[in-house]
Design a protein around this nucleic acid. Sequence first.
DNA 1: CCGTAAGCACACAGAGCGGTGTACATAACA
DNA 2: TGTTATGTACACCGCTCTGTGTGCTTACGG
Lengths: 213, 213
Amino acid sequence: MTELEKGPQGRRRGRGARERILSASQQLFREQGINRTGMDQLCAAAQVSKRTAYQHFTGKDELVAEYLRRFDPSVLSGVFDRTDLTPRERLLAAFDIPPATPLCPYIGAAVELHDPQHPASQYARDYKKAVAARLADTAREAGAAEPEQLGEQLALLIDGAAARTRVLNADAFPTAAAIAAVLIDNAIPASSPRQPSDDRGTTGSAPVPVGGE
Amino acid sequence: MTELEKGPQGRRRGRGARERILSASQQLFREQGINRTGMDQLCAAAQVSKRTAYQHFTGKDELVAEYLRRFDPSVLSGVFDRTDLTPRERLLAAFDIPPATPLCPYIGAAVELHDPQHPASQYARDYKKAVAARLADTAREAGAAEPEQLGEQLALLIDGAAARTRVLNADAFPTAAAIAAVLIDNAIPASSPRQPSDDRGTTGSAPVPVGGE
DNA sequence: CCGTAAGCACACAGAGCGGTGTACATAACA
DNA sequence: TGTTATGTACACCGCTCTGTGTGCTTACGG
């Protein structure tokens, strides 16, 4: 609120229409789903005219893809960079998600759009692969015997917890965390939890994927 | 094809419109999703006039709920009754699903409908709970230390594999099966895989739930 | 033989959807 | 001052969706 909020008809009312549109997307798409959120409602929530919205995005599809791309997952970005935790603790921290998370939006988008070729679906795939890769990197760092396998397994647990939470309307992440603990204990040869600040670079998977296969 | 198939305008053309409608639902809802399948298309596929459809079902919502209710999951009904397998093998067999399974329709319905109060969503919850209960029963039968916990964990693995398969467009059930094997080995105190035909009754969870909370 | 039940064909209503066209208003910059 | 970029307000198009209304056809049963 520095120089923004010019007036009822001012040129820019809150630093760019784009941001407001994407911000409204974050809320509405997650609360109501993608298909059930019309462009009219979304523009109204963003306080942006529909005409403007279609000058920033060629269509709803592009908007949905951007929405997913802009989604900054608290889990991913927050967990993997925490050098105060051991790799092993980092792996487990991936299951400590805040309870106010309705559903992994990537799964939701893939199911709702129902088209694997949709840009958003492609990004969802890329993202999920990236998460698994990051988990694998951390597993390797933790000294796991087969880090790729463990990463894939932990990723599956996260997705399972997300899906089950949605269907049952009850938090399933504690169960997933319990399984994760077992898997990690089995995979790491009962030794070598590396020091926290000893971060030899991860093998180098990007924090966020860009292209679509 | 005994006395059915009367003619182009015969009174009954395949033993009841209801069956044909539900049969077409099984196919279309799974292939295309619920929201993307209109009643027009569905009625055309079922060779039933729209008017007739709405005399059998008060609306699409009821039809969707019936569709889920009639869904006979090959996994559930097939696996738990196989007395030729040990309980432990039965638990693992739950992950041997045929590769031609697009997505667990219960998850799909819960995500697509996006309303926990929808009859179909409620049934999906009940069904998922029933599966977990059956798994827990089998785990108990197999001599697991904490069967309820193991049942919930295996159920989470199944859901995770289903969700991940959908998002990644690649079969994730082998990974889930690998995890399941680890969990089962850890939970069963390295003894007592009961004889195949020794079926003392399971604790008694219904094969399919009926009411919705 | 006639009534009734079941179904069909078809048009239509009402709403919501994604997306566009048009005319106008404001602010920055030349 | 005038131009241009950006945005608004609002009507509108074509489409699809769920759901009905209406009248006709067929088969069965008393």
